[in-house]
Every structure is written in structure tokens, then in C-alpha cells.
Design a protein around this nucleic acid. Sequence first.
DNA 1: CTGAAAGCGCTTACAG
DNA 2: CTGAAAGCGCTTACAG
Lengths: 346, 346
Amino acid sequence: MSSGQRPDPQMSRPTMKDVAALARVSLKTVSRVINDEPTVNEEMAQRVQRAVKQLRFQPHAGAVALRRRDRRSSTIGVLLEDLSNPFSATIYRIIEEVATERGISVLGGSLDESTAREHELVTLMMRHRVDGVIIAPASHDHQYLLRDQEAGVPFVFIDRGPVLLKADSVRSDSHKASAEAVTHLVNVGHRRIAYLGGDGSIATSRERHQGYMSALKDAGLAVDEFIVAEDIVTIDGAYERATKMLASEKPPTAFFTGQNLVTIGTVQAIREMGKQRQIALVGFDDFLLADLLEPALTVVAQDVVTIGKVAARKLFARISGDVSPTTDEIIPTRLIVRGSGEIPPS
Amino acid sequence: MSSGQRPDPQMSRPTMKDVAALARVSLKTVSRVINDEPTVNEEMAQRVQRAVKQLRFQPHAGAVALRRRDRRSSTIGVLLEDLSNPFSATIYRIIEEVATERGISVLGGSLDESTAREHELVTLMMRHRVDGVIIAPASHDHQYLLRDQEAGVPFVFIDRGPVLLKADSVRSDSHKASAEAVTHLVNVGHRRIAYLGGDGSIATSRERHQGYMSALKDAGLAVDEFIVAEDIVTIDGAYERATKMLASEKPPTAFFTGQNLVTIGTVQAIREMGKQRQIALVGFDDFLLADLLEPALTVVAQDVVTIGKVAARKLFARISGDVSPTTDEIIPTRLIVRGSGEIPPS
DNA sequence: CTGAAAGCGCTTACAG
DNA sequence: CTGAAAGCGCTTACAG
């Protein structure tokens, strides 16, 4: 019955009990040494250290979490839109960085704009008793998180704020950034500026659309619904809409595109008509190679690194017991002028 | 002392005990219902179901794992080079997909080509008792994993094979793909083809370099070390080396670049000298927008999606008890002809 | 079919 | 300073 035997096909790993036996001390003493409690006899401590090394003992994180007073699992959950897209991937990476420094592991998940998937993944995270969650939600009602919040799990919202829930959030000012981009085009002389944006049910998409609208209004320009599209979710979709607009009788002289994929599809459309030197374009979100296109792409860029860092720090502060009022951090965006947005109307 | 009370500042979550009390059955019966064991009286089962709903009970994954005979934690570890780069991010996403279908959570980590970080993160994963690991290793000696392997944790290597360890692996044939790319340039008429590659200590980089060498040899061409660089790790580094080569007395007429960032830096260098219509270029790895450059980029593309899927399936097969001999899956690459690789020497 | 007891691998609270 | 007992939230093995 000693744990040195292996009844299973798979060898069992050493436990604290094995360490205690080898070091000829009690379980509790091993626990003390492992957790760096100072009140241990030097000689015993060394025996324990040696036994730990010899057995290559690694404490079972699950068992530790189960028994600890604070029930910390040393894991956090990070739920983003799609970990394969550059925005989500960068955010994840930054959070991972901050977490690893603290010995915390990260459970990651992609929501794909699906409320159902969000619910599933949150449930899964809760079963794992993560210490906190950073989420770019797909859903539009976050009351369901209240229960877990009250159970002590902090949630930090990223990119999109919480709805019907009080929680910290970190994001860019989409409205202002979009207005800035459109105003930039107005200043270059454009009067007929198209908007192509992503799924209008997403808060950030709506804000970008509204930023476009208010910039037009401020410039005294009327909105022409024919050159406004806010339901584009693929590169091809953007390509088609942009092509249609450009081929119309009254084509736009400039585009503001509210999302990465939309920007790419629009570039393709403009390029295919050979109009890349006539039609202006400003895109939301920067991406690798944007500066290698011809003309290079003018964009409003989010400060993705800062968003991730601020969110991670906020989460860890909450986990460490920070109970100050929730905050809504707005991270500044930056207009990067590269050429495509400075083409005057012809 | 009932768990309905909350001595802590943070409310405690309902446990199976609470469910049992509310449903007026034993713990074991609740366990049976939750685990879909069939031998439960219909009426009791319903009482349990109702109690579970009412309390919004979620089983504690850690406690379950601790007690299960097989000790499954329902988590896997995914350790890749850098989750913010498109290759790693796509792989992660695919694995996540396959895992989520099975109710498995994914702990992700970036190794950044650091052996130390690899060791740390593997240790962390082992503490969490992950059921298996998919790893694109930074280290060049994987014996240290033997212990965990024997303890029943399957490892699937991705992108790079295991060294001094027997384990499954899934990757592209870097050597063959590179040779193909270089031969393509030879067939276009090039006799002076430069190689710019990433960190030569990485196995895949070495294979790409060797593929370049053997293609030259097959074509009866001599190697000129001046136009070979295999220690480039940044876009700027590639830019500088390419610029230097192009500015030399005997510049190359074509480039084969062994990695994404290197390709981008080389494009910048060629472009800045205004030679994008004279100098040919084939890159290893495809990327978004490669087809929007002028000329569009010819690349050898890895089938990232298949690599991820095959690795994930292999891991889950192992976790489910597959004990067949280890395999080394080679996923075919594809030469995508777009223009930059078909420019003849001038 | 149902339940009381034991125990997974640890930490806690309490004696000595 | 050290250790024996209890218990975290579950499943297992075993009676009834």
C-alpha cells in the first residue's frame, strides 16, 4: 500500500507524503519548507530540500488550491474574440507575460462573437475556479456574471464595456478615434466619404459608425446611406461592397473602414480598379505590412499593448484584494499618416 | 456551520453537499446524477436536477480531478513560440477548437526561443497536472520530459521534432519545401540566389538553410557565403543584411527568405532601392496581405491548419489511451506563385 | 437502487 | 519549532 508501488499502468508521481517519508519528517514540515515558512530547523529543512530534488517533487496545484484558505487556483481565464486574429493574439500575449511573472497560468478561449460560446467558456472557467477573468464579450447582457463576481471572481472587460454589470473595463475610444479619422479625410478635402464597418451588433462597431456620423455632421456633410455599410464580416464582403460603391454613378472619393478585414477587402477593391492613387482610405486598426502597401495605409491605431497591460494589471490588483471603485480606462488611439489617407479628391 | 452561511468576505459557491441537502438525497446520489450514471430513481434524479439548477451548482474541476481514478484534469497545455505571431496564434486557435469540443480547457504559453522559459512553463503545466501537452520546443534536449511522459502525460511535438526523446511529432518538411522554393528560382533562370534565414540554432531554420544548399548543389551552383545569412531575428536585421547585399558589387538577383519577419525586412530593402521589379523573392510562410504587395509575394506556405488539427487529434488519441508506436507526421507545403518569385534575372 | 465511509494531495487550525 | 488530526469538494469501493 506504500505509494512507492505502482498498481496503475501509469507511474504515479511523488507526493508530499513520499517526500516526508524520505526526509523522515512530518507532512506538515514538508509543507512548511515548500511554502518558505521560516520556522523550520535548518537541518530538517535541508533534508526536505534534498528529498524534493531527489524525487523531483512538484506540488499538485489542484490539491493546493482545494485546501488553501483563499482557494486560489493560480489560473486566470482570458476570453477574447478570436485568438488567431492579431488584435486578440497580441492582447493574449501581453496578459500571458504579466501572468507568468506571477506564476499564474492562463486559460485562453475564443468567443467568435457567439453568446452561447461565451456562456459555455465562462462556465468552464468557473468550474476550473479561475482567480479572475479578462473578457472581450460577445454577449450584450452580462448580468449572468454577477453571481461569480459575488463569489469573488473579478472580471475585467476589454475592448467592450460591461452591460448591466458593474466591472472594470479597458478600451479605446472608438467613437473619438473614428471621428478623428473621418475628420482627417474631410480636412484633405473629401466631401463624399464612405463607411464600411463590421457587424453592427458589436458595440465597438456601432461606436465607430457613430464616430463617422458625428464627424460628417460636424463638417456639415449629409449622410448618403448608399455609401454606408455596417454589416460586413469578411474580406470578400468588404471587397464586394466597396466595388459596388466605386462602380456606381456617384462613387465615394474616400473610404473609412472600421475594421481590419474590411480594410483589406476595400484595398483589394480599390486596387483592382486601379484607383489606389485616386481614392483615399483610412482604416481602423493597424496591421503588419500596412506600411508596405502602395500607397502605404493611413490608419487609426489602437494601443493594443497598453490595453493588454492595463487590463492585466487591473485584474491582478483585484485578485490581490483591491476593492476600490470600478474604473473605465480609455487608452488613447493614434492616427498614423502614411499616404492612403492624404490623397485629395479628384 | 452550514454552508449556507458566509464567514468569508467572499460568498462561497454551492457544493455537492448543498445540492444533496436541498434535494434530500445523499452525496453519492448527486454524484450519480451529475455523471449521468443510469441507475438512479427517476424521481430522485429530478429532485437533484432541480436543486442543481436552483443553486446554479458547478462542480469543482480541481476536486473532481483530484479524486478521479484517472486523475484527469480536463486541461491540456499548449506551448508555442510566441502566441502573438500568426503561425503560433493559428495553431493555438485550431487546438482550442478541438479541445473545446471535448470540454477540455487549454493552458497556453509562449516560449520565445528560451530554454529556461520552456522548463518553467512545462513545470507549471505539470503542477496543474495537464492531461497532455502540445509543444513547439525552444530547447534541443527533451530528455527532461521522460519522467512526465512515464507518469502518463503524452507530448506531441509540433513544428520541431523531439530530441533524445521518443514522442509524436507533426511538422512541415522544411528541407524539401526550401529546396522547392530555391529550385523554382533556378528554373526562372537565377544563378545568384541569396539566403536570409532565422536563428540557426533552431532546427527548422537549419533545415531551411540545408534545403537551400542542396537545391543549389542540385543545380550545379556554388555557394557564396557573402549572400548567405542565417542569424537574423528581426525585420530590421533582415532589412540591413538585404540592403548590404544589394548594394554590393555582385548583388544577388534573387532572394529566398526563410522566415516571415525576414521576408518582410527583405521586401522593405528591395523596395527602398526601387528594385521590386528586378529582384526576385520567394519567402517561407504565407501571411495576410502577401497578395496585396506589388509584386505580390510568391511563398512556400505551410498548412498551418492541418498541422494544428493533426497534432490536436494525436494528443487526444493518446490521452484516450492510444498506445500505438509514435508517429512523425509530415504535412505537405505548397508553393504559391504570385509574381515576386517569377521575375527573371536582369 | 442508495448511502456511509474512506481518501485524492494538500493546508489549516490546533496541540504539544 | 514540530506533528497528528481534520477537512477542502469531490469519486471510489464497498455495504446494504
